[in-house]
Design a protein around this nucleic acid. Sequence first.
DNA 1: ACAGAACGCTACGAGACCGTATCGGCGGTA
DNA 2: TACCGCCGATACGGTCTCGTAGCGTTCTGT
Lengths: 194, 194
Amino acid sequence: MVETTPTRSERARQAVLDATADLVAEVGVERTTIDEIANRSGVAKTTIYRHFASKEVLVVEAVHACTYIPVVADTGSLRNDLISCFSGTTKASYDGRLGNMMLSLMDAAQRDPELGRLVRAQTDQRRRFAINVIERAVVRGDLPADVDVDLLVTLLAGPLVYTKLVRRQRVTDELVAAVVDTVLARYAVPATTD
Amino acid sequence: MVETTPTRSERARQAVLDATADLVAEVGVERTTIDEIANRSGVAKTTIYRHFASKEVLVVEAVHACTYIPVVADTGSLRNDLISCFSGTTKASYDGRLGNMMLSLMDAAQRDPELGRLVRAQTDQRRRFAINVIERAVVRGDLPADVDVDLLVTLLAGPLVYTKLVRRQRVTDELVAAVVDTVLARYAVPATTD
DNA sequence: ACAGAACGCTACGAGACCGTATCGGCGGTA
DNA sequence: TACCGCCGATACGGTCTCGTAGCGTTCTGT
């Protein structure tokens, strides 16, 4: 990652992407307008269209640009790794802009194939982190070999996503731990948990 | 419920509400327009405004009108009641129109207080069914008295909602049973489940 | 049958938004 | 310094949507 001085063009482009992400987080995809992006970013509407072919393309790029990848620990403990995984995912996904735009994004994704792919890729990636943790545990023998990994991830991620998106409550570390412990109680070898 | 012959006015009103609910389910709250409602319903736009003050009011009423209440069994078995509860809720909520409009509704609810209240009331009602089942089980002694009811409902509802709204997969009876069994494994008295 | 209420149709003004054209100005480079 | 590329500002045409007005038509109860 060499830090080059950004050109004028790059600065404008970045300002536009930032303003777009902010706006999508605030008012949703549908209510985000090019004129307002121009106001917020200080970049002229004409210039925006020099960089992005349409509003849809811009939104996709802006959302894509603000999805980043959390770091998941590998401590050798299934419980700890899962908590790390879901805490990280939660913090990355649900605090700040990305969290605020998720509902609007998923809604818009129902009708925009490009956004649909983006949201699905995002979801799949989140799940993959958990799947990796689980598969490591299977290898270690901490989980039975025939465990339904897909179901397990859903049992873990579901309550957290539901808490955030539907109930609109904060996903605390306590909740993450409670969810992990409850679900593991079904599968895991008798743990030294408590 | 005496079935009276609907007046002309009532027929128009109902047609409008129906078309609105259809449209919201198809294209979402934001993209639903009065003109299209007029086309679909066969009711003139002028008449729509004679019945409903604004688009927002109409949408709220239309959505409200298509939320109905599932019947939850009371079999005396915690597992069976929970499965009945969540199967019923799932079928009522996530098949058909209501299921298709949930995402758009929750998104719009972030910015429309009236819709927000509606969605919250809907969510709370769904949860209350499960809470009732759980509290009956506590009274029977099938669950410890100090069980965290709120957490328990979240653990049960979360994976199902997540499957439907985020993963966009069908919520099968098998999934409901798997979720219930997994979560109960943590709390319940050793069951005769399998 | 008749009067009043309710509806349908067409047209309209106002505002929001999209995307483009035009032109003047600033900024990096030879 | 002179130039070319990129940006900013303004304005515009076109479309969509809301909500209303005017007027003729149809229904409903008496």
